[in-house]
Write a protein that binds this DNA or RNA. Structure first.
Length: 252
DNA sequence: TCATTAATCGCAC
DNA sequence: GTGCGATTAATGA
């Protein structure tokens, strides 16, 4: 009891102390809130956020927990996953700055069907369900943007079903590498998101061992190079060519 | 340095 | 392709 009171006080104190980081000065231009900030109701709404800080590896959405709001990534990177049979993790997607997390649980769902873990130290903007519903009902352009976002997510999700069900393991892993590459780009020639072999496997729908095997094959073929978690793509064109026949499309 | 944790590899199914 | 166990490399307290 005492700790929960303490926590409330702390989070309130934190909210005031970082008041300076408003949506107006945010650098994430792709954020839906930032894009609609010229609308007065969205502008007011943007001040009702709570900032949440997560350390690397910290889980901020737990599968099965009640839905109570929506997260936007202010800074950092996140993986969204679902636990499957035998406790195996299926990574649904990776999310970058400016993106929305927990939207699937919004709507009529009562409980989150996914979990989310910060892949690095991350700052989240959090809006409660009630606050969000209010702005959705008053501002059509914001709601419309959010609807487009949902449609897009559904499209990607359907594309991923095809990827996992019809591609070979090697193709799925190549696809994963390209996905990380186009979504997070590179830094000093390495993919700008250090992932474990297991995380590649969880996204590609295979096992850690397969990832290791395919990686070493790709290294031998001079398509990629890898030093631990630092992966760099040596021959992007050839990798793309490998899966081009599956007419995959860019899902940002 | 020692103790974990992650990455590989080999082998059976 | 998958799963398990042994070995080796990397990381970090």
């Amino acid at each position: 009891m005492r700790t929960s009171v303490q926590h409330t006080i702390n989070s309130n104190a934190r909210k005031f102390s970082i008041k300076g980081v408003s949506c107006g000065t945010c650098v994430n231009d792709t954020c839906l809130i930032k894009k609609n900030l010229s609308t007065p109701s969205v502008f007011d709404f943007s001040h009702k956020k709570t900032e949440i800080r997560c350390r690397k590896g910290q889980q901020f959405i737990i599968e099965g927990a009640p839905v109570n709001g929506l997260f936007f990534i202010l800074k950092g990177k996140v993986k969204v996953f679902r636990t499957g049979i035998n406790g195996r993790e299926q990574i649904v997607r990776f999310a970058n700055e400016g993106e929305i997390i927990g939207h699937r649980g919004f709507g009529t769902e009562e409980y989150y069907s996914i979990g989310a873990i910060a892949l690095e130290d991350t700052v989240l903007c959090y809006f409660s369900k009630a606050i969000l519903q209010e702005v959705l009902k008053t501002d059509p352009s914001f709601t419309y943007d959010l609807m487009l976002f949902y449609a897009n997510e559904l499209n990607k999700s359907e594309a991923k079903v095809k990827t996992i069900s019809q591609m070979t393991v090697r193709e799925r892993i190549v696809d994963t590498l390209l996905y990380i590459h186009r979504k997070f780009n590179t830094k000093n020639d390495f993919l700008n998101l250090p992932l474990s072999r297991k995380e590649y496997a969880d996204y590609a729908g295979t096992t850690e061992e397969q990832v290791i095997r395919i990686f070493s094959a790709l290294k031998k073929e001079n398509l990629i190079s890898a030093k631990g978690k630092k992966i760099s793509i040596v021959n992007l064109a050839l990798l793309k060519q490998e899966i081009s026949e599956h007419n995959y499309y860019l899902d940002s």
